[in-house]
Simulated scan of single mutants.
Amino acid sequence: MDPDPLLSRATRYTTIAAGTEAVAELEIKRSRFLAVVRRAGTEAEARALVDELRRGFHDARHHCSAFVLGPDRDLRRSSDDGEPAGTAGLPILEALTLRRTGTDAHGDDVADLSDVAAVVVRWFGGTLLGAGGLVRAYSDAVSRALDGARLVPRQRQRLYRLPASHAEAGRIENELRAAGTTVLGTDYGPEGAELGLALPDDDDAVAAAHARVASLTAGSARLRPVGVDWVDAGAAPR
């Protein structure tokens, strides 16, 4: 379950697209490193990834991991899983937390990746890499995986329902989508239809949506607020 959006200081962050994962592999002095990065909305989901890879690659010596959770990225954990302290889990965590995901309005780099878990599986090749070599290997493995990840912005949005007749629902939905409003879908019942909308968590955007709906329906329909939730860009709440 997502954290309460009303308790977060953030209004958006970046995560990995739902249902996808990022994978990369590298070999250093015959040691093999396999990095898997996947979306995780809870600590249980993050630990489930570790357990899955530990079962799937039980012949490996180490299954080092880290995860970052929450819109404010305030839940962070890492594990060296038998590697020398600070040479595996922390580099994995830093690869996640320092990942550049875009730029802000001032052109400065943004690093806001969250709700992600990363595991690096290592098969020992017989040659010690030293502390510096391990740090670079674990960090590079995750960074390479993230290079191929499909990232999506996740925004805090206000959710609304809009009633409409069967005859008008399609037209209203098309007009709203054309205006850039996120329409989560339309439910059809015996007495009419109801559109689900997600609006930016911003008073001006909500006021503009109210005015647009009033214009489209000649004032006959009004938006009904149903809460606040985190929504992937272009997707329905999960």
Rank of each mutant, 00 (worst) to 15 (best):
F67Y: 14
A95D: 01
D72Y: 00
C64Y: 03
F67Q: 09
D112F: 07
E94C: 08
P91N: 09
S78T: 12
G70N: 02
R99K: 08
H63P: 12
P91L: 04
R61T: 15
L93D: 07
G70L: 00
E94Y: 02
A85I: 05
E94F: 03
P71G: 12
D72P: 00
A105F: 10
D109F: 06
L98H: 13
D74G: 11
H106R: 15
P71T: 06
D74V: 11
A88Q: 12
V68A: 04
A66W: 02
R61C: 11
L96Y: 00
T87W: 05
H63W: 09
T87R: 05
G70Y: 02
R99L: 00
R61A: 15
H106F: 14
F67A: 10
G70C: 04
E94N: 11
P84V: 01
A111Q: 14
I92V: 15
P91Y: 02
F67K: 11
P91C: 09
G86H: 10
L96I: 12
V68E: 07
T101C: 11
S79V: 09
R100G: 13
R77W: 11
A111T: 15
S65I: 01
A88P: 06
A60I: 10
G86D: 03
T97E: 06
R77G: 06
A85P: 08
D80E: 13
G102M: 04
H62T: 02
T87E: 13
D104C: 11
A85R: 15
R99Q: 05
F67R: 09
R77P: 11
G82H: 01
A66E: 07
A111C: 11
D108C: 12
D108S: 13
A88H: 09
V68R: 08
A111I: 07
A95F: 00
A85L: 12
E83Q: 05
A111G: 07
D108H: 14
G102F: 00
G86N: 03
S79H: 11
A95P: 02
T87D: 07
T103C: 07
T97W: 06
G107N: 07
T87H: 05
A66G: 10
D74T: 08
